[in-house]
Design a protein around this nucleic acid. Structure first.
Lengths: 393, 393
DNA sequence: CTGTTAGCGCCTTCAT
DNA sequence: ATGAAGGCGCTAACAG
């Protein structure tokens, strides 16, 4: 019932081997026979058996993309960009060429699922794997990931990191494209400082994530450089991975707003003015409520990303405060909606599409990796209406 | 170098068949041998060869999801929901169970790419295919799609439509989950009418798309029912697919705003107050500019979807008009950001996640299809701040 | 419950 | 430039 290569060969009066060569186009074949074969393919409506050819050739047409959540445009944009590079031109002939298929894997940020998906992709003999988003900073998980990626690489799978910092022992990784989260966080903070803000609340992402840590570190670096936060802060700047190691859920408990509002700032603000949450809207809302409870004097709120900023803005408005007159708000990522909210969101633009496209090219072997396999993708400050000089008094 | 099933069998001192049975868990195996096998698997770090097992079993672990654009949350949410149902619980054991992988295919709305991807999925012997988004209303393409889907179904692939109207000859489709776009468009318009609006501009989606047509028809039905638009309108209501058949790009040319502003409305408004564009922000902006040029008297703008509404709102503001005091704006879909824009967007909520999850279950064979294979998913009107009574005069 | 035996459909040396 | 033949790694009857 199902037509095979042999059927095509019979109809074209050639050997199966010849048909295979025509279909894969990797080998010289006389034009006349090629045409005969192609005609037979059309006549018989033949479709190659992918699993069979993958088995024989020990490779597949699949490229895995690991994302936290494909419903989040942050990841959707990168995933879409990867596809533009791995899916062929789509000539519309109905006949398929050398295009690869994207297997999108939602990890939800869970280390276990991340590993499971890598195994699944290994099982599929994926041609490449693109890992997006920040990594979880658990040493055990990092080790497990390195081991897994090494196995994948051994099996011929190209591994590319997109928007994720390089691994310590990254020899199995073809290329790592890392966003300049720290620089972005710093510039955003410097922007607020230059406007005159001194008491700035920070709604951070989940603990133990590189993205969270880097953005926060950039922020704190700028605060410290400005003489705020004193110099007695916690680890921070050095970039060691262990500093948030065993910390559980903290922050929401709150230590009461014992501080007065007189002096510009003091050591300890660093902790008090930071609240951690997840990368979603409601988390931004809740964290901002908590921030305002702890320190009603803040004149600005920096959010972990644009989505969180949306929640933060809602909380501020619900409290009857105006943006930016009473409180400035800023996000991170510059997602498409950010320019359209009112007031337009000041944020840090990450070239998500460009990064994803580059990752896709790397995954296809169409582009040579950056020197050392590592590239830092710049993050650009976008100043818009949601930030302004602080209210007086 | 690469460890195979036979290696595991040897180490566990059983036959390859037994190892296979343990791994697939579809067959009774003594607990003691199972444990022995599992230990050997761990010891050897064995990973099943997917292509090989797909070849032998004539099925695969892949489920295709066709979307217009994965970067658009409309599709991202559905795709993510599908995954929650097809990816197993992810027990974290590192060992993979019966979970399937999602192959996300960006068609960009192109019929040719849609077909190409279906061929690619057929080649992979996908276990199921979920098609999302509106269909293109070209008879030739419809026929080609039907044929292709029939072949897929023949080969044992389950075909599910999610947010896409059923095909005329849908016997090869397991289930079609269609959004009530027409009802949503109608209720949205009735809402505006009840507020007192009479001159309503409509920023429609691309021509020849079912989604575009249905939403627009719902709108026009309501207008006509209210006695606006006269009764001499074009085809509309019946739901025949041919009515936009050969129309090219129209609308942006504009026929000049020759009409006065005196009477409430007249036949011909139907065309004049509708501008087609694509489903993106800038298209909404441009279309709204055009709408305001044609008819400065409009008091409300209905957008094809929320993203378009964002662009429309920007155009209105740039013109110095206020929302909703001068002009009301409404969208469609109720994407996550819609509640957070200012003013919050009146829109029609589509249960994208629920629909995607159901499609996923259907694709997995975990849920029985609705009677007749067709289900209409309700669309709920969400009244928020962006619509209000029209300005007087 | 477990082992044996055939392929699944294709690619790929090796000849010619 | 083309044909012939073996095997990729696994599953699915069929025995026992």
């Amino acid at each position: 019932m199902t037509v095979t290569l042999a059927d095509v060969a019979a109809r074209a009066r050639v050997s199966p081997a010849t048909v295979s060569r025509v279909l894969n186009g990797n080998y010289p074949v006389a034009t006349s026979t090629r045409e005969r074969v192609l005609r037979a393919v059309d006549d018989l409506d033949y479709v190659l058996n992918g699993p069979a050819s993958s088995l024989a050739a020990a490779t597949s047409d699949l490229i895995g993309i690991l994302v936290n959540d494909i419903a989040d445009p942050f990841f959707g944009i990168m995933a879409g960009a990867v596809q533009t590079e791995i899916g062929g031109p789509g000539d519309g002939s109905g006949r398929a060429g050398g295009e690869k298929l994207a297997v999108v894997c939602n990890t939800g940020g869970s280390p276990a699922r991340e590993l499971t998906y890598l195994t699944l992709l290994q099982r599929q003999r994926a041609a490449a794997v693109v890992l997006t988003g920040g990594a979880v900073e658990d040493p055990a998980h990092r080790a497990a990931m390195s081991a897994k990626l090494a196995k994948l690489a051994d099996a011929g799978t190209r591994v590319v990191l997109c928007g994720r910092p390089p691994l310590p022992d990254g020899e199995s990784v073809l290329a790592a494209l890392a966003f300049d989260n720290r620089g972005g966080g710093r510039r955003l903070t410097e922007h607020l400082l230059s406007l005159g803000h001194r008491r700035i609340g920070y709604v951070a992402g989940p603990l133990e994530r590189t993205t969270t840590r880097h953005r926060l570190e950039g922020h704190r670096d700028a605060m410290r450089a400005a003489g705020l936060y004193g110099d007695a802060g916690t680890a921070g700047g050095a970039g060691t991975a262990g500093d948030t190691g065993t910390v559980g859920k903290r922050g929401t408990a709150g230590e009461g707003s014992t501080a007065g509002g007189g002096r510009p700032a003091h050591a300890g603000d660093e902790e008090r003015l930071t609240v951690h949450g997840s990368y979603d809207r409601s988390s931004g809302y809740d964290a901002t409520v908590e921030l305002l409870r702890r320190e009603p004097e803040i004149t600005a709120v920096l959010a972990a990303n644009d989505t969180v900023a949306l929640g933060a803005a809602a909380a501020i408005r619900d409290r009857g405060l105006r943006i930016p007159e009473d409180i400035s708000v800023a996000g991170f990522d510059d997602l498409p909606f950010s320019v359209d909210v009112v007031p337009a969101l000041t944020t840090v633009r990450l070239p998500l599409f460009e990064a994803g496209a580059r990752a896709g090219r790397l995954a296809m072997g169409k582009e040579t990796p950056p020197p050392g396999g590592i590239a830092t993708i710049p993050a650009e400050l976008m100043v818009r209406g949601s930030t302004a000089v602080p209210r007086v008094g």
